[in-house]
Simulated assay, not measured.
Amino acid sequence: MKTMAMVVRQDAYDLVLTPLAFAYLGVAYYDEINILFVNWAVRLLSKQGVEAIKPSADHAGTPVEMIEERVKAAGLPADLHEIFKKLKETGKVHLYACSLAAQIFGVEERDLIPEADGIVGATWFLTEKAEPATIFMQY
């Protein structure tokens, strides 16, 4: 079984697009894709966080709508929550919130979007998902 594991730590729209695009494209090749959201990125798996996403400080003057238009023109869903939905529809992608990050940034199980697979410990993710993965990436 070919698997991909990723750790995502950025929560800005333009910075999270790359790992999600790799996951989106990876479902054609990998049997399973596991993504752990740590640090600020854990908020992206919450209902409030997925709706409040903004560009990074490097691109703060760029409207999210403009980036979304370009993402849509490239053939990907532009809305972050829609990307999560499409990834989950494949049946191959699992989205995990890091328990330490969730504690630090105030994300509880009840706050998670339906597409999230829950809050897990980083050690579990590293030993069960990342270590045996065919490929591991971090963003």
Rank of each mutant, 00 (worst) to 15 (best):
I67L: 15
P63Y: 12
E68R: 12
P55C: 14
K47Y: 03
E69R: 15
L95P: 00
I83L: 11
R70E: 12
S56D: 10
A73F: 14
E89R: 10
I53A: 03
S56M: 14
L76Y: 15
T90S: 12
D79C: 06
A60H: 13
A97Q: 02
K54H: 10
A60P: 03
L44G: 04
K92P: 01
A78K: 01
F84G: 05
K72S: 13
E89M: 13
K85Q: 13
C98W: 04
G91S: 08
L80R: 04
M66G: 02
P63C: 05
E82L: 05
Q48L: 09
G91L: 05
L45W: 05
M66E: 13
D79E: 15
P77C: 06
E51I: 05
K92S: 00
G61R: 12
A97L: 00
A52K: 13
E89L: 14
E51S: 11
E89C: 10
R70W: 11
E65R: 09
R43S: 07
A74T: 02
K92W: 02
L87M: 11
Q48N: 08
R70F: 11
F84A: 06
G61A: 12
E65S: 12
Q48V: 08
D58K: 14
K88Y: 02
L80K: 04
E65L: 09
R43A: 03
F84I: 08
D79I: 04
D79T: 07
H59R: 08
R70T: 05
E82D: 15
M66A: 11
I67C: 11
A73S: 14
M66C: 05
E89T: 06
C98L: 06
C98T: 02
V50K: 00
V71W: 04
L87I: 07
Q48E: 13
P63M: 12
I67N: 05
L87G: 02
H94M: 06
T90W: 02
E69C: 11
Y96W: 09
R70K: 12
K92A: 02
G75F: 07
S46T: 08
L45H: 06
R43M: 04
L80H: 07
K54M: 10
E68S: 08
P55N: 15
G91V: 00
K47C: 01
L45F: 08
A97G: 06
S56Y: 12
K85I: 09
S46M: 05
M66P: 00
A73W: 13
F84P: 03
H81T: 05
H94R: 09
E82G: 06
K92N: 01
A73I: 07
K47N: 07
I83V: 15
L87D: 00
A73Y: 13
K88M: 07
V50T: 08
R70N: 15
H94G: 01
E51F: 04
H94Y: 12
P63A: 14
G61C: 07
P55K: 11
C98Y: 05
P63E: 15
D79V: 10
G75V: 03
G91N: 08
G75M: 11
K72A: 12
I53F: 06
A78Y: 04
A97K: 04
V93F: 04
G75S: 11
T62A: 10
L80A: 06
D58F: 14
A60R: 14
H81R: 15
C98V: 02
R43Y: 01
P77A: 06
A52D: 12
I83H: 03
C98K: 03
K85S: 06
S56K: 11
A97I: 00
K88H: 05
L80G: 02
Y96L: 01
G75H: 14
T62N: 09
A52N: 15
